[in-house]
Amino acid sequence: MNVIKKLISIMLIIGICIPLSGCWNYRGLDTLSVFTGIAIDRNEENNNYKLTIEFIDFSETSKKEPSKSQLVEVEGRTIFEAIRNAKRKLAKKLYMGDIKVVIISNQIARKEGINSILDFFARDAEMRETIIPVLSQEKTAKEVLMSNGVDNKIVSEELEKIIRSGWKTTASSKGVNICKTFDILHGKDEIPLVLPAVRCKNNKEKKIVELNGTAIFKGDKLKGYLSPEETYTYLLATNEINRGIITVPLNDSQDKIVLELEKNKTKMSYSYNENRLKIFLDMSSVAKVSEVNFDIDLSKRETIEEFKSAAKLDSLQRLESLINKGKKELNCDLLGVGTMIHKSDPELWYKLREEWDYYIQTMEVEIRHEFVITNTGLTK
């Protein structure tokens, strides 16, 4: 009996291993058109979606010559229809599992919203959740894919790397994947959608793609943009970064110091009394001196105190400017105050949300900033 059981077990193991010994849906790269990026515009004549698709051409790939990309333009009444129509122009099988970015026309985002566009990318099984939606600041989204990469000949891949690395180094933009974007658009919290904004710049007689701050949404419609400097302040205020460079002017002169932020913690709280909403931003920053463009004795305590006072004043002015822009120009809950209140006091939130625009416009914001300089980087 034991021998029979062993034989059955061995046969079952062999039977299970056979289908696992190879890739059941193997497809060679030479049989695929691998999409890396899609730019989405409108055809004003027939109102169809007009897609510009970047795909990798593996036909001439070698050790000396890296992969190159090509562009194909297609149209359709829906995003899915337009992508399927690409098969009329491409002989190989379409593969969308390697798309890095989806670049959206600012005109579509402002007039129509982006929810219907992103629905296909969030729903399709072949798409990855790591796709990054991007807003084009050019007249069309197509112009971004028609530009040149500096480090990479595939524009979509270069743009994705710039966004992911830029958030950590320059903190001048913010990358949000397609899954998170869809959650924000369909969530109940008053979190504004913030996506990276890009433009084209001339560089040695060529146009290259450049990250240029962030696009701010109210619901799924574009309200406006934050510059790279404003985006940095926004990320500090919302406690999303703790690194970066701060250039601080001293008095009204040309003298400037550059501080490198080593640590930052921002905590937001509120009070509500007699129909008045007040927000408190408590910031704690630690930085070191990285550059000074004038002669000054950094060994003196009063010098460091002067630097700290200048840094705090500059921070206060930038934060006040950002908050005012959120109220007046963008008319949205830029800092996510509604989400904070909803989490801490749902009953109060249900009371305020019916007139939330009014409270955003009238709320008072008090900024309290503790700033510490730990290292002056003294030179010999």
Rank of each mutant, 00 (worst) to 15 (best):
L322R: 02
R353N: 13
G336K: 01
E355P: 09
T339L: 11
K351P: 01
H342P: 00
T362L: 05
R353K: 13
R318A: 08
S321H: 09
Y350F: 08
V337E: 02
K351C: 07
L330A: 04
E320V: 09
V337W: 01
G338I: 05
I360N: 13
E354V: 02
Y359D: 04
V337L: 02
N324F: 06
Q361R: 14
V365L: 09
R318I: 02
E320T: 12
Q317L: 03
S344H: 13
I341L: 03
I360E: 11
R353W: 04
C332A: 12
L352M: 12
K351L: 09
S321M: 08
K327E: 03
K351E: 14
C332M: 12
N331A: 14
I341S: 06
L319T: 06
I323Y: 10
K325C: 03
M340Y: 02
L348E: 02
S321V: 02
Y358F: 14
D357F: 08
K351S: 10
C332F: 10
Q317Y: 07
K328V: 13
L348I: 05
S321R: 13
P346N: 01
Y358S: 13
K343H: 13
L335S: 03
W356E: 08
K327W: 05
L348P: 09
L352H: 00
P346R: 01
E355A: 06
Y358V: 08
W356R: 06
E320I: 10
E354H: 12
D345T: 03
L330F: 03
W356P: 07
L348R: 04
S344L: 05
P346H: 01
N331C: 12
R318F: 05
Y350I: 06
M340N: 00
K325Y: 09
E364A: 11
K351F: 12
V365M: 06
Q361W: 11
E347T: 07
G336P: 01
C332N: 08
R318V: 00
G336V: 04
Y358P: 07
V337P: 01
E354C: 03
L319M: 12
Y350N: 14
V337I: 15
L348Y: 05
L322W: 05
N324V: 04
K325I: 09
I323W: 10
W349Q: 11
L322A: 07
W349S: 06
L316I: 13
E355C: 02
T362R: 09
V365H: 00
D345Y: 06
